[in-house]
Amino acid sequence: MSNPRDILGPQRFSQSHAAPKLIPPNASVTKRYFIRVVTGVTSLLTGMRVTIGKFFDPRTTVTQQYPENRDELKMAERFRGRVVMPHDADGEHNCTGCTLCEKACPNGSISVLNTKHASGRKILGKYIYRLDSCTLCNLCIEACPFGAIEMGTEFELATTRKEGLVEILNKKAGRL
């Protein structure tokens, strides 16, 4: 159940399933009464069908038995763990050192320290990320125009050393 939308099954709220207008505006009181009884009962039965289906279908369960299934645990796609910078096979990343993320960060958790390439142009030197002051708000990821950073799925972030919470995300300096 990585995608929360999957839980609900196929979209049930399409146009064809919109509530039909069963009670004509000029219906008599008696007719209204009986129409309401019938529609009420059918809607209750529909609800009961849904819940019993979920009850007997173990695949719909979203609860994770966490410490036991740690090895095969699949995190949701949109889970917000710590900020990571993906590196490709050659060890390169997409960060240009534009500092948009640094400006977007409300806590000052990101410091982009740029350096000078031999050609004289500015490139990324150190991308410092401070998990201790990060609220995992996702604003830096939204600000990044290059997709250089993203929210990781790691969530076991506890540490006994304060220094472990400050990290340099890039493995090597930026390229031209």
Partner: peptide
């Protein structure tokens, strides 16, 4: 347990 499984949970385990 019944409420949990109807709400896509597991309940006490």
């Amino acid at each position: 347990k019944v409420s949990a499984h109807m709400q896509l949970r597991l309940g006490p385990m």
